[in-house]
Design a binder for these strands. Structure first.
Lengths: 206, 206
DNA sequence: CTAGTGACCAATACGTAATATGGTCACAGA
DNA sequence: TCTGTGACCATATTACGTATTGGTCACTAG
């Protein structure tokens, strides 16, 4: 199920009304972070905002949809950190370095500081939830922009098709960008990602 | 436990005598492949070769040690395929391509044809068994040799420290070389590994 | 001394009954 | 009509007693 809509806010229901839906999301954020996705029941969320369980389902079509919503928030917070870091870069080279450093740092921080939320993000990626694919798409576009900029500025080579270059870069960094894989490679942070970025930059040399 | 000896045949016991030990390993190979590591009991192995369970423990100090032994065999078969493929390469560039292609193909084949053994390999990597770390070391040395050869032949750049280069290459290919990660990326084989290898080769250009 | 084992123990896995949970729906009050 | 719910169902999860399993050891036969 849920094969049709890989958007971030899929699985929502009823009016786009904010007050109740936001209450649900806020409560879910707290509960999921403290007790984890699995140990939080929909009734818990309902009673914590003073409504019945059935009412929740007027706004979300499943528990997973709530999970995706809070996962979207988590990932949005990562990408906003990443974008902020990129914005501080002067050159495309600098921006590429920053993009990956910020992603890895931010994800690792989440792992250590908010493990329960990290686990949801990892699960989301594993199960290819919309929240995760949307995030990946955003990150890919970010990367594409940087490479484009680097090419325009003469920093990067222009022979390889843009899309292939970006896919390859993404693939090469995946062990440290994807939560599912990162958790098995934390002991090599930050040296390994750094060395890979350097390798990537060498490959981008014109 | 087992922190001291990351060699392939750690956890063995008694005489290096081959007949019985080999019988055990052979039986384990068949049982693990057919029923999986978890569903195979040490008694199963014992009775299949006509001895008592206790006798097994004269040769292996744990069930895991048997698992490592058969995992070593699996990984050895992969690395021999890889080495054979490398041997057919003319240039270092060619050898690098072959090394990764053979590794990915061989691992993917194992995944589809002998899933139970694949799972052991993945678990071995996840738990950092000696069988796995030894295999990784072998592969790393293989890579190092190729890069060295490429540098000597003027195919590859020589500025970046050899070790850093190799670590970076390894890290970049990990999503497709490590069984734990490969299983989440099978749908991008063989295009993605190919593109990454191309990226790596561009980065190695002198 | 070597080759081999039954009996034994702690820990883990398993089967199952009881319980809890995700999700729906007809309905009620305003 | 709109906000909200209790009661309900099928599935998932838990709890827990029982059976298996990994692993050891004292011991026997030759």
């Amino acid at each position: 199920m849920n094969d049709i809509a890989p958007t971030a806010d899929a699985g929502q229901r009823g009016p786009t009304d904010h007050t109740i839906r936001d209450q649900i999301v806020t409560a879910a954020g707290e509960h999921f972070s403290r007790y984890g996705y699995g140990k939080t029941t929909v009734s818990d969320l309902a009673s914590s905002i003073g409504f019945s369980k059935a009412y929740i389902y007027k706004f979300f079509e499943s528990k997973q949809a709530i999970g995706e919503a809070i996962c979207s928030n988590t990932l949005a917070s990562i990408s906003s950190e990443v974008m902020a870091s990129i914005a501080e870069g002067r050159t495309a080279t600098d921006k590429l370095r920053r993009m990956f450093k910020a992603t890895v740092d931010s994800s690792a921080k989440l792992f250590f500081d908010d493990r329960k939320l990290y686990d949801i993000a990892a699960y989301s990626s594993l199960e290819r939830w919309g929240s995760s694919t949307a995030h990946q798409r955003r990150m890919f576009e970010l990367l594409q922009q940087i490479v484009l900029e680097g090419r325009a500025a003469g920093e990067f080579e222009r022979k390889t098709p843009l899309d292939e270059t970006c896919r390859a870069i993404f693939g090469a960094m995946q062990s440290f960008m994807n939560p599912v894989m990162l958790q098995h490679n934390l002991d090599r942070v930050p040296e390994a990602p750094n060395e890979i970025i350097s390798l990537i930059l060498r490959s981008l040399a014109p």
